[in-house]
């Protein structure tokens, strides 16, 4: 049975991948997905701690994170669709020009 450090390393690597995704991608929806990836990485570390301490509170936290992530995805996608319908553009650089 792998120890807790294995799960934490995996979680850190996934979080790093998500972080790089947020920084380097240009498509707004892909950036949203990278954020989801980071949230998943955090969930993994919560579940790992919950397992190795036999404490259910970590899982409660994961439950909350999932709900917030779903809400965030809903709002983000709605905004992306609204912007795309109006400007036919999903590049993150374009969003800097949305003023007024």
């Amino acid at each position: 049975m792998p120890g807790i450090e294995h799960y934490l390393i995996l979680s850190a690597l996934l979080f790093g991948l998500g972080m790089v995704g947020v920084m380097v991608r240009k498509n707004v929806i892909v950036i949203l997905m990278s954020i989801e990836l980071m949230l998943n990485a955090v969930n993994l570390s919560f579940v790992a701690f919950s397992h190795f301490n036999a404490d259910v509170k970590g899982q409660v936290m994961v439950f909350f994170v999932m709900t917030v992530a779903a809400a965030e995805a809903g709002v983000g996608l709605a905004l992306a669709v609204a912007v795309y319908k109006k400007f036919k553009e999903l590049n993150i650089r374009f969003f800097e020009q949305l003023r007024g």
């Binding site: 920084m23 380097v24 240009k26």
Partner: peptide, 20 residues
């Protein structure tokens, strides 16, 4: 292209990859 262009995002790219 998958990745954004420009100076700012270039710095971000380097920063992100080096953080990883």
């Amino acid at each position: 292209r998958a990745f954004s262009r420009g100076m700012m995002s270039g710095i971000l790219k380097v920063g992100g990859v080096s953080l990883f």
